[in-house]
């Protein structure tokens, strides 16, 4: 990568992180100056632009204490999904009417509302399966999507499906199987010895679906009621997986009902009043 390209990317990343323009410009110029004098490869000297940008953005935000992450003051993460005034009609019925939504890195947002109010539709629009009738949708980065039902290949074993989905993200076969089995393990399920998807119970199929969505650590997780059909223990494990995902700086949007999850979510969006609210938990 040439210095010019690297600096351009750096500027872009700093902007995406919400760093004030004056600070961002100073950071870029300082790096440019350093690269000019050191005549070094930018990747060797600074690392990837995104990583350096994050380091500088973190350094800008004053830390309350050196020890640990209090979690209360987090630099605004990069926007991974944004819906602006999204509208959708199905057979003459308005399912979504001017919905606004934003999901950033380091956020787990819950989407709640009564049945039939368009939660799944909104998720599918963000995933790119359905086009909205109005409004704007932006998604930045790779997406992992788990629908409410199905989305699995009936006659393949979980490990084979890990390979099929994992290779799409550029993982090697072994890495794909390892990654999938690791997530399955977190959900309390031994995927390596499981039979074909058709022979699994409904709850186990949900776990497989979640594992396939999380495979290869996409930037944004879109999960449609993934804990449905899970027993209490497994559902708990799922929520722990989600908060862990969020704590590691990734983004997730989950269609949910669970009342206790609402307390730990970063934001809750409620559909069904034909208006989306955004409230910090």
């Amino acid at each position: 990568m040439t210095a010019a390209t690297w600096l351009e990317r750096l500027a872009h990343e700093l902007d995406a992180l919400g760093v004030p323009a004056a600070d961002a410009a100073a950071i870029v110029v300082e790096a440019e100056s350093h690269l000019g004098e050191a005549a070094a490869d930018p990747l060797a000297s600074f690392g990837p632009p995104a990583g350096y940008a994050r380091l500088m953005a973190d350094a800008l935000a004053p830390e309350p204490s050196a020890a640990g992450t209090a979690g209360s003051v987090r630099a605004a993460g990069r926007v991974r999904a944004r819906a602006v005034a999204v509208r959708k009609r199905y057979r003459g019925r308005t399912v979504l009417d001017g919905v606004d939504l934003t999901v950033r890195d380091g956020e787990a947002v819950l989407l709640i509302g009564p049945n039939g109010c368009g939660k799944s539709t909104l998720l599918r629009i963000l995933a790119g399966l359905v086009r909205p009738d109005g409004g704007r949708v932006e998604v930045d980065g790779a997406v992992g999507y788990a629908p409410q039902h199905g989305g699995l290949v009936a006659q393949l074993t979980p490990c084979e499906q890990f390979v099929l989905f994992g290779r799409a993200r550029g993982l090697s076969r072994e890495a794909a199987v390892r990654d999938g089995c690791r997530v399955a393990d977190q959900l309390g399920w031994d995927a390596a010895r499981a039979p074909v998807a058709d022979a699994l119970s409904g709850g186990t199929r949900q776990k497989l679906s979640v594992a396939l969505a999380a495979l290869g650590a996409p930037d944004l997780l879109l999960l449609d009621e993934p804990y449905q059909g899970l027993d209490l223990d497994s559902a708990q494990r799922f929520w722990e997986l989600l908060w862990d995902w969020r704590d590691r700086g990734r983004a997730a949007l989950v269609v949910a009902h669970a009342a206790d999850a609402i307390e730990r979510a970063d934001a809750v969006v409620e559909l069904g009043g034909a208006v989306a609210l955004r409230s910090a938990a």
């Binding site: 950071i27 300082e30 000297s45 380091l55 350094a59």
Partner: peptide, 27 residues
């Protein structure tokens, strides 16, 4: 300034200090 400090640290025997470590520390 930044690069000057990196050079001096190198002379002291620290090896090449990556910009990715130097500038965040200064900031």
């Amino acid at each position: 300034y930044g690069y000057e400090l990196a050079r001096r640290l190198e002379e002291l025997g620290f090896g090449t200090i990556p910009g990715g470590s130097l500038y965040p520390a200064l900031l």
